[in-house]
Design a protein around this nucleic acid. Structure first.
Lengths: 215, 215
DNA sequence: GTCTATAAAAAGATAGAC
DNA sequence: GTCTATCTTTTTATAGAC
């Protein structure tokens, strides 16, 4: 979990904003980002006015703009939050090592854990990314692709090792991503299924699906 | 393929609008829906102003409102178009009969065919459905759930017949839907892969994944 | 640090001329 | 059927008092 003061959370605008802010300011900002993620997820980014945003955060416009530069910066912060978590999970998996099968299983565990813990952030991430413009849109595109590549690399390693069938690595990565990402629609804390209880059957299904056994 | 004059295309507002319109009016309306789907997919529903919509359609506001009642009706028409196509495909599959495995394969073929032929409509469908309100939102929810149930029913039939492992039918249906629906991000006419060239490996992967063979 | 007031632009929709 | 002009509301953002 990325704490409020984590440098990674400052990746985007705040890192280049100049003067550093107090920890209290940082914490308040993170709270605003979290609350806004919920509102954006429920109502939609463009559909949500600043007035609504202020009401949800219990702040006036003047106060809100004391913590954010613009509405789009808020959106970018939500995206960064998700990508930070997702990439951190992928890094843990890479550090843990193991067979391609084990790696893929762990990647699924980590990804569904993020979706489960940050349902609103992820919803916004998957729905509103086209609203990012310019530099922000490009950075998002690159980071997302970077993650997809991790999945694809694991699949390729499994194919090369003879563990997996000779499938199209890119296409299979997209299938895996779709299966997992799509859970954002229904995977919720307190829901029927926990992240692990989804990740396990998903890994079973997928590994059987691409296994070289019986070929 | 639902032609422009198909009654199903009139499902929503037009069917209850009262006086019938000329075929020429209907055709023009369908063209507007198609063009608007493209713009909504590229820019976002809420982010697209009526002025932009008019420009894309080569029409003034007065003319545009001659063909639609409201911006949201336009959005609903796009959603209906997708659901009409998707359910028509599911009906063809049910009519064709065959084993659960064959049924699931055919469902994938049909679904990816719709995504491939209507990339913009589907994009809007998957991204902007929360923008529908009241009656329209409810109707959409019901139809979407109806389709998901078809997939789940095929899985359940396969489990009961002993063709598939004893998986969680609902969860497995959601996995299948995710894998297929997620292709809306990259499946395009003229792309590297055709609908069939994606559907086949997807069906292979999925059927191996849930097959009872070797249990 | 938070407020209210305000600005300037754009939104969705309608009226009425042609 | 299509246009232009207009209405009303709402948008994002800023200014300046406190």
């Amino acid at each position: 979990m990325t704490p409020a003061g984590d440098p990674a959370a400052l990746r985007q605008d705040e890192a280049t904003a100049g003067p550093h802010r107090s920890p209290k300011w940082q914490a308040r900002r993170q709270a605003i980002i979290g609350t806004s993620a919920r509102v954006f997820a429920q109502r939609g980014y463009h559909a949500t006015g600043l007035t609504e945003l202020c009401a949800a955060n219990g702040l006036g416009k003047g106060a809100l703009y004391h913590y954010i530069r613009s509405k789009e910066e808020l959106l970018a912060a939500i995206h960064d939050r998700v990508m930070d978590e997702v990439m951190a999970g992928a890094d843990r998996v890479a550090a843990a090592g193991g067979s391609p099968s084990a790696q893929l299983t762990m990647l699924g565990d980590e990804l569904l854990d993020v979706i489960h813990r940050y349902p609103h952030h992820v919803w916004v991430f998957l729905h509103e990314f086209p609203a990012l413009t310019g530099e922000r849109a490009e950075q998002f595109r690159v980071r997302r692709r970077e993650y997809e590549q991790r999945v694809e690399d694991v699949l390729r390693a499994g194919i090369d090792a003879g563990d997996f069938r000779d499938v199209d690595a890119r296409l299979t990565a997209l299938a895996w991503l779709g299966m997992h990402n799509y859970t954002y629609l229904w995977l919720r804390p307190g829901g029927r299924l926990s992240a692990r209880n989804v990740a396990k059957p998903f890994a079973d299904l997928f590994l059987r699906g691409i296994s070289a056994d019986g070929e």
